[in-house]
Amino acid sequence: MLLINRTGRGVSQKERPPKVTTTKIRIVIRSFDHPFLENHFGGLQPYTRKIGLPESRVLYIVSRSPHIDKKSKEQFEMEIKKKFPIIKT
């Protein structure tokens, strides 16, 4: 297979300069607070792809009193945010 360059001279496949390969780093960031609001991606390039993954929420319902009163309860939660940035190096 011949490639025609600008000068019109035929260049073989072997003489073509090597392709610049970029590696992609894929990380899943999990945190309790929102990564964008807290600016966890401050050091990355502005064009980094950030894919949002589904957030999970765990509820814990605990009775307020250590002894009696089962009707009065308190609800706690843990929200886990997930982001999936693809960093090109």
């Binding site: 605990v62 009775s63 609800q75 706690f76 939660e77 843990m78 929200e79 886990i80």
Partner: peptide, 21 residues
């Protein structure tokens, strides 16, 4: 246990756990 868990959440000793509504 539940009682200690509640105390620790109020004291902000458990990361990520907050009161929910």
């Amino acid at each position: 246990s539940g009682h200690i868990l509640r105390e620790m959440v109020h004291a902000c000793l458990l990361p990520g756990a907050t009161r929910s509504s």
